[in-house]
Computed example of a mutant assay.
Amino acid sequence: MVRISVEEAERDFKAVLAQVAHGEEVVLMEQDRVVARLVPPRSREQELATMEVFRNSLRVSGEPLSVTVVKARQEERG
């Protein structure tokens, strides 16, 4: 991870983007405070893996929504 000032990034933004394009994370600092973080985009495989981990973490309880809808429709019809 590279830390540079906002002013430094302004002077040579193309070089900063080149670093990010090559997989480097660049943190922009202003008065010793982090103001931004530039990171390379994740690959499609990384995105899908993240979504799969999220889906697997969900715990569903109760009856399926389709069953609930059918019951509600039957109750409306009397």
Rank of each mutant, 00 (worst) to 15 (best):
V6F: 14
D32S: 12
L38N: 01
L48V: 11
E75S: 08
K14M: 11
T50Q: 15
Q19P: 05
E63Y: 11
P40D: 01
Q31R: 14
V20I: 01
K14S: 15
E8I: 05
Q46P: 08
V2Q: 14
M29I: 07
R55T: 07
R37F: 09
A72F: 04
Q31P: 05
E75F: 12
K14L: 15
F13R: 03
A9V: 01
A36N: 05
V26I: 03
D12A: 14
A21V: 04
R55A: 10
E75Q: 12
E47M: 12
V39M: 13
L58E: 05
N56C: 08
S43F: 02
V20R: 00
F54K: 01
A15N: 08
E30L: 11
R42A: 12
V16E: 00
G23P: 02
E25S: 11
L28V: 02
V53N: 08
G23A: 01
F54A: 02
V2K: 15
A15C: 06
R42V: 15
E7W: 14
S57N: 05
A18P: 02
V27E: 03
H22Q: 08
E7S: 15
E45Y: 06
R77W: 14
R73W: 08
P64N: 03
S5T: 08
Q46W: 07
V6A: 13
V27F: 08
G78Y: 10
Q74F: 10
H22V: 07
E47W: 13
P64L: 03
S66G: 12
V39E: 09
F13G: 01
F54T: 02
M29T: 04
M51F: 10
L17H: 00
E63P: 14
S61R: 13
V6S: 13
D12G: 15
V60I: 14
V67T: 15
E7K: 15
E47Y: 10
L48H: 06
R59D: 10
R37W: 09
D12C: 13
R42G: 09
L38W: 01
G23V: 00
Q31E: 09
L58F: 02
V20H: 00
I4D: 03
M29V: 09
V67Q: 11
L17T: 04
R77Q: 14
V39N: 09
R33D: 05
T68V: 14
G62N: 02
Q31F: 10
L28F: 04
A9L: 00
G23I: 00
M1N: 10
V16M: 01
E75L: 12
R11V: 15
G23N: 00
A9F: 03
Q31V: 10
Q46H: 09
M1L: 11
A72H: 03
S61F: 09
I4M: 05
R11N: 11
S61Q: 13
E24Q: 13
A36F: 03
V67K: 12
R11A: 14
F13P: 02
E7V: 15
R55D: 08
F54H: 00
F13L: 06
V70N: 07
V53P: 06
V35A: 01
L17I: 03
V70T: 11
E45R: 06
L38A: 00
V16A: 00
E52S: 04
Q19G: 08
R77S: 14
H22W: 04
R44P: 05
